[in-house]
Design a protein around this nucleic acid. Structure first.
Lengths: 193, 193
DNA sequence: CTAGAGGTAGACAGGTCGGTCTACTTCAGG
DNA sequence: CCTGAAGTAGACCGACCTGTCTACCTCTAG
């Protein structure tokens, strides 16, 4: 494994678990067993390293979510798979996303309030890509084929519920089981179609 | 106005706008026009000052939300008033909550990942008190009188939507209008009752 | 064999942080 | 009038931060 990857992997897990500001460069060096000069040879600054971590996380998360929704052919299946997957993540049953500590992007954005900061922009882009993924899935189901407006609405609703579920789990340290009730889910979807 | 209040007010708005770690004690001193010794005479540490800010914010937010829901007598009215109020907040039309920068408690919790930290506990307590407020309102409506389980479910659903709406607005810097559609709202509520 | 790229270890610079402390001032109550 | 509490201004401390730089090492391509 090349040095760059080593650094990003170590940094990502540290940043995600402890927060970006709370983790210093030296801690990352120690964790990845790399010299300071090497790090600054690959990244011009800590901010750039953070951006690289966000990009990796974005890629991993989207990949994971894509796989979770792969075999869904109805809006209900999409919603059900989505909330099931999130719940598994929250309960630390998803090794590729690491121990649950909320949404890395929301956490990072909270530490960089300036809306035009590169880090804030990456967080925004991530959310847009997830929304797009949901939209694509929904708009290709039998029930919503061609109904772009409805697909958009339902994707937005699922997205909002997802964000809420993740944030609540983060703060209250407990998983919200409400959204795994098939009855409620069916009705939620029916209300949007 | 006494010094303690001056300090807390200055600190709260700075912490909320820029993040807790990004604001130093000296900035607060400068902003509140108070000597360092005075600050440390009132608060033993920065952490304790942060806690005082969280408590003040909790009180203000709950007071505001309580007023927004005061005249609601049906679940629909509660939901409608809730999302309308949130939307006004997001659009910076609520002066008592200051310029919108997401949920102060979620932001703060993101900077203090240890779940047993006093700051994390206050964030958790805040969310519980908001959920309780929603539950109280709902369980006293004609439609849900005596139906504690249903009230709890709907409160939980509204809470999750609220969290999602706030977080999305924070990251994407745009307000989600979906939850202000009365049709959708009616159906969401019907699905839960 | 050798030159150069890329690695290591860590001292160092310059700045900021939270927090302590001293010396001086203001002012209300007995 | 005097005492003591509370405030001011800001120097100072030790710790830690990002980022630079030196000196040395290792390995590979020509």
């Amino acid at each position: 494994m090349d040095k760059r990857t080593q650094i990003i992997n170590t940094a990502l897990s540290a940043f995600y678990q402890k927060g970006v500001h709370a983790v210093g460069i030296n801690e990352i060096l120690k964790g990845s067993g790399v010299a300071k000069k090497t790090l600054y040879n690959h990244f011009v600054s800590k901010d750039e390293l953070i951006c690289a971590c966000l990009e990796l996380r974005d890629q991993r998360f989207n990949q994971w979510l894509y796989e979770q929704l792969e075999n869904c052919n109805t809006p209900f299946e999409v919603a059900n798979a989505l909330f099931g997957a999130l719940s598994a993540w929250i309960d630390n049953e998803v090794s590729e996303l690491g121990p649950f500590n909320g949404c890395f992007f929301i956490n990072a954005a909270a530490e960089f309030p300036q809306s035009d900061h590169p880090i804030a922009l990456l967080c925004k882009a991530h959310k847009e890509s997830v929304l797009q993924l949901l939209f694509d899935k929904l708009s290709h189901t039998e029930q919503l084929k061609g109904q772009l407006e409805k697909s958009k609405q339902l994707a937005q609703l699922l997205m909002t519920l997802q964000e809420g579920m993740i944030c609540q789990a983060r703060v209250t340290h407990s998983s919200n089981t409400l959204l795994q009730d098939p009855m409620l889910l069916h009705q939620l979807i029916a209300s949007s179609i």
